[in-house]
Structure formats: structure tokens, C-alpha cells
């Protein structure tokens, strides 16, 4: 048994699941739609950052794709068949994580670049410069290519812990969009804890809009380490779970 065999099996499983593919599709379409609406309907010219604004709403769907890879099996008990096929529990999670992350890379790439292309097309020659002039501009447009796979890993971990699709999906959709903003908005403590909120760190990597927060590079590292720790905890939990 190798990790490769397992990864092949997991990819066959995932690509055969309509729910998984729909989530990835939403991860693409939502940012495109945001870009189209913001640049197509706005009365004022928009900047390059705005073309990537929709990633925040697309990325949770990629996380949900990761969630479903775990919960669809844990909820029905069919995870037992995966464990019968390969009794190594860590290998099962790692191969699922590999498939989720690998599927998220092209989705993130297309989400970012096409959103940018839509912006350029709709804005025409007016307003702020949307050209990819340097490293910073590339980072903004390609950010989703890196962030989406990390979100998929977080999805795998959350799915492993919560085991049921509905609560895991609600958590993953609401946490980045709503809960982190609420926490950051709390008086006194909000500002203090803002720096440790993982999706705020992801935002910082894309937009670099908070001079007091981590630099984009460190923010990305923090987000990745957060996902890694969560995934390691999920492996630990799954190894000790009776099926």
C-alpha cells in the first residue's frame, strides 16, 4: 500500500461526487460574479484589489468541498470501507488532503486570474491601473491559487472533527465571512485577537491593507501553519476513533 494508491482511490471517489464538483464550481463562479458585478455595475472605477474581493466568498466553498470529502463518509459510516482498504488512518487523511488541495489549486488559479480578466475587460481604460506591473500585483491576483488549497485542508480537518455535513458547512461558510468580522469588531479585545484570526491573516496576504498586522508573507505562513496544526489534530483524532 502506498500513499499514491490511496490518493488515486480518493481522487476517483471525489471526482465521482457531484457535491464535491459543485463546491469547486462555486469556488470559481462566486469570485467571477463578484468581479463582474463590482466592475460592471459600479459607477466609480475600481482598483486591482477589488477584482479579488470575491475570493472571500468563493474560498469557503472550497473549504466545504474538503468538509464533504470527510463528512460524506463519516456520516454514513462508509469511511469503514476506506479504512478496510487501507487501515493506515493517517494515510487516509493525508491522501484526502492531497486530493482536496490539488483540486483547489487550479480552481484558485482560475478564480483569481479570470476575476482579474473580467475586471480589465469591464473597466476598459479608465480608472486605476489594473495591469500586473510587479510582484505585488501578481501576489494579489494569484493569492487564491495558494489560499484555496489551504482552505481545502482546513475543510478536511473541520469535517473530521464535526463528522456531520451540516454543522461543518455552516461553520466553514460563516466563520470567515461573519464570525471573524464579529470577533474583530468586539470592543477592546477585538483589536488584540484580530492578528490571530486565520482568515484575517489570509485577507492580509491578499490585500496587505493593515499596516499593524503581519506582512503578507508572514500572514500566509500563519494561515498555512494554522491549517497544518488543525490537520495534524484531525489525524490524531481520527486515529483514535472507533468506526
Amino acid at each position: 500500500m502506498t500513499l499514491l494508491d490511496n490518493t488515486r482511490a480518493e481522487s476517483a471517489k471525489s471526482l465521482g461526487s457531484k457535491a464535491f464538483l459543485w463546491c469547486l464550481a462555486a469556488g470559481l463562479l462566486v469570485p467571477w460574479l463578484f468581479s463582474a458585478v463590482l466592475f460592471g455595475l459600479s459607477e466609480f472605477p475600481q482598483d486591482l484589489e477589488t477584482s479579488q474581493w470575491g475570493y472571500r466568498f468563493g474560498m469557503p466553498f472550497v473549504g466545504v468541498a474538503g468538509v464533504l470529502m470527510m463528512t460524506s463518509e463519516l456520516q454514513s459510516g462508509s469511511v469503514a470501507y476506506s479504512v478496510l482498504a487501507d487501515p493506515s488512518r493517517w494515510r487516509l487523511i493525508v491522501s484526502k488532503a492531497a486530493v482536496a488541495a490539488a483540486s483547489a489549486v487550479p480552481v484558485g488559479l482560475a478564480a483569481g486570474t479570470v476575476s482579474w480578466a473580467i475586471a480589465v475587460l469591464l473597466q476598459g481604460g479608465d480608472g486605476p491601473d489594473l495591469s500586473l506591473a510587479g510582484a505585488e500585483q501578481y501576489r494579489i491576483v494569484l493569492a487564491a491559487t495558494v489560499l484555496y488549497p489551504i482552505a481545502a485542508l482546513i475543510g478536511i480537518a473541520v469535517g473530521t472533527f464535526l463528522e456531520r455535513s451540516a454543522p461543518a458547512m455552516v461553520l466553514l461558510l460563516l466563520w470567515p465571512i461573519l464570525i471573524e468580522n464579529l470577533i474583530a469588531g468586539l470592543p477592546v479585545i477585538g483589536e488584540a485577537v484580530e492578528v490571530v484570526l486565520p482568515f484575517m491573516a489570509a485577507d492580509q496576504f491578499v490585500f496587505d491593507d493593515d499596516p499593524e498586522a503581519l506582512s503578507p508573507g508572514w500572514a500566509l505562513l500563519y494561515f498555512a501553519v494554522f491549517a497544518g496544526v488543525l490537520l495534524a489534530a484531525a489525524v490524531f483524532r481520527f486515529r483514535h476513533r472507533d468506526l
Binding site: M1, A12, K13, S76, G77, S78, A80
Partner: peptide
């Protein structure tokens, strides 16, 4: 092995199910 029939993956077809099982063990 055959474990309880209730835990089969209901969303998959039997061909798909046996397909990935086979793939996982070459």
C-alpha cells in the same frame, strides 16, 4: 470482509464503489 450493509456509500454506484476499492489495493 463484509460489514453492515447500512454503511455502504449510498451516493455511489456499485461499479464506482468497487472501482475505487480495487484501485486502492491495486
Amino acid at each position: 470482509s463484509m460489514i453492515d450493509a447500512e454503511s455502504l456509500p449510498t451516493q455511489q454506484t456499485s461499479a464506482h464503489f468497487l472501482g475505487w476499492l480495487a484501485r486502492s489495493n491495486r
